[in-house]
Design a binder for these strands. Sequence first.
DNA 1: AGTCGTCAAGCTCGC
DNA 2: GCGAGCTTGACGACT
Length: 297
Amino acid sequence: MNQTTLNVGYACINLSLQAEKVTTNRGMIKKTFTEKGIVYASELAQKNVQDLLKIVDWNLKNGFRLFRISSDLFPWASEYQISQLPDYPEIRETLEEIGSRPIRLTFHPGPFNHLAGQGNVLANTIKDLEYQSSVFDLMGLPPSHWNKINIHAGGTYGDKSATLARFIKNFALLSENLRARLTVENDDRVSLYTVTDLVPVYEAIGTPIVFDYFHHSLNPGEQTEEEAFLTAYSTWDVRPVFHYSDSRQEREDPKARREAHADWLYSAVNTYGKEVDIVYESKMKELAILRLRGLLA
DNA sequence: AGTCGTCAAGCTCGC
DNA sequence: GCGAGCTTGACGACT
């Protein structure tokens, strides 16, 4: 659903509603899944999906028209098809309702996903990515980068370009809808992938680059922030979603690891005159954005 | 009701 | 080697 105004959002958890036990990441340990199977998974998934609708409506009421959905929405999703769940009719109905809301939804599958991996690593990655794409399908969202499914390229396996070549090759193994939604993000470590590193991937398979300001500051490569921003911006066929957060080490705790995100936000984002939507990745979630608005006002 | 040991998956880096 | 960090703490046995 395209809109004319720029969207602001946050990731996965709404702290205001979490206080009232509204959450979308109910799950279970392996032992419980072995004992209770998809009947219990269905129960938890239904609650998660119902609460996702509550969070989406809270967001719309409070001016957030962008939200990253938790990848834990369906516990043990790799072990079943959503349509096999006992509560599938109700779950599907709620997902359709969510999909009809005027909000931009995205996924950010976990760090275990390595499309350049091999064997089980690759198989698990494909399962996990396809599951998240199927949720968007059930929501009735047309496949496009508007509803991005965003991942990192993964490790380097000692050879960046060979790894990216495998990433490009394995992209062909994904469903058409997933391919239309996939994006890649620059990494925070100097050994991993900068925006510039990811350009060949975009050129080969058309996956837009999600620019993460904080990651760029830790791993700028040869580009300034503005150059990297504009390079990433140029890869998008719809309005981009970029990520912003402040450094915990710089702002809140000198002993924190340099990759750690700060609880709060401290300054406005420079979008270099371009229109982009921003997911703020601060630990204090929507509260950090609300506080930043107050600071800027 | 609250505490606390433990928890699917991969990779990287600092201690 | 271990643990933190990344997407985002939460589960569940026990007191």
